[in-house]
Design a protein around this nucleic acid. Structure first.
Lengths: 206, 206
DNA sequence: ATTTTTTTATTGAACGGTCAATCAACAAAA
DNA sequence: TTTTGTTGATTGACCGTTCAATAAAAAAAT
């Protein structure tokens, strides 16, 4: 069996197995024994290729983040100077790409979010991602909106995307991708169409 | 030390200690030894009052859900026939109540969300809550919007609330409650102001 | 009022079980 | 023969639960 050049194969295999295990029993019960079984290998392999369980989990998160990055940039690649709306739609579509909306990936995302509160490695990865989403959105809105309004629109849209995604992950019936994208598109349109409002500061109307 | 009528005191104590432990090290490392230490009692007490760790965790989630329910209904109690906007703002404010926006509670919510994917007890509690939020929002929007539009507005606002809340939990700088509420208010206003649009179905514009 | 009994509250050591990591041994290709 | 890949039993650490023992208050009996 043992050939040369197994490393990339095994790594992909084990990351996939990790997603399956988390989908099956959750991160808390995704033991290395279970993950190894999913991949059809022995437990020792994990330490061999990932320096232990933590390394595998971090690699799994990096893998998902990589897919997300690709999904977004592929869609934006050909857009060039297209209007902000086109870029914003592409970012939305990328975030609701098939690679991000499978049950196992959504469950894993959720688990990593919770973990990232206490593991600085995961926290770093997650924050880079959050900021990238916000800054991408923000710079597109900025092309047609004044600074403060662009900032708020970006914050709102980022929250809306994550929220739709989160509620889809938790819902019994799963995430309805088309409907979610539509709601996000609507938000974009309203932000772009709404006439410049008078500046508001954090107010206290109840 | 032992007096009569300790049960409610200890239960509150242990739930509070659970929140502190989760805030400190996360759900995964919130051992009963650590929780007991936070509460200043021995480990045995937990099984005595909660029938084991799972019981304590479920009680903790129920406690947070109870606070959320109170926060919302207190704000709506006096509103009666007030316009939908007032009710919607009250629901928003309730969801961003102080009891729901402390660091320990936000971390705990996040941990429970992830857990609820695999523990049917927590899943049930979480779904009841999700549906309540959606149906409260939906019935208010329904007072002034046609069915489909009301449904979409409710879905969007629910997602926006959860998303703002989620991003606040994950962000380094924490949740800016005033700003979050403002963004949610804006969404409400846009949904209520926007002239009745032509009906759209799930479309495929890219 | 005093003693005895019962009830309620609490402790923490001991137990059984699980898990991640290690590493000596093995196998097949180079 | 060397390198690369793989195994899986062993090990040490840790965790939740249990339960016999203890202590103090409350209730009952004297």
């Amino acid at each position: 069996m043992p050939k040369v050049g197994m490393q990339p194969i095994r790594r992909r295999q084990l990351i996939e197995a990790t997603l399956e295990a988390i989908d099956e029993v959750g991160l808390a019960d995704a033991t290395i024994a279970r993950i190894a079984r999913h991949a059809g290998v022995s437990t020792g392999i994990i330490s061999h290729y990932f320096d232990g369980k933590d390394g595998l989990l971090e690699a799994t998160m990096r893998h998902i983040l990589g897919d997300l990055g690709s999904a977004v940039s592929e869609r934006r690649r050909t857009l060039g100077e297209a209007p902000p709306q086109a870029h914003l739609h592409a970012i939305i579509d990328g975030n609701f790409d098939r690679s991000q909306t499978s049950r196992s990936v959504m469950k894993t995302w959720l688990a990593f979010w919770a973990s990232s509160m206490h593991h600085t490695n995961l926290q770093r990865l997650q924050r880079v991602n959050d900021r990238r989403l916000y800054s991408n959105l923000s710079s597109q809105f900025r092309r047609v909106l004044p600074k403060r309004q662009a900032r708020d629109a970006a914050r709102g849209l980022a929250a809306l995307i994550d929220g739709l995604w989160l509620r889809g992950a938790l819902a019994q019936e799963g995430l309805d991708v088309d409907r979610a994208r539509q709601l996000a598109y609507d938000y974009v349109r309203e932000q772009l169409d709404t006439p410049q409002r008078t500046q508001r500061r954090t107010s206290d109307y109840a």
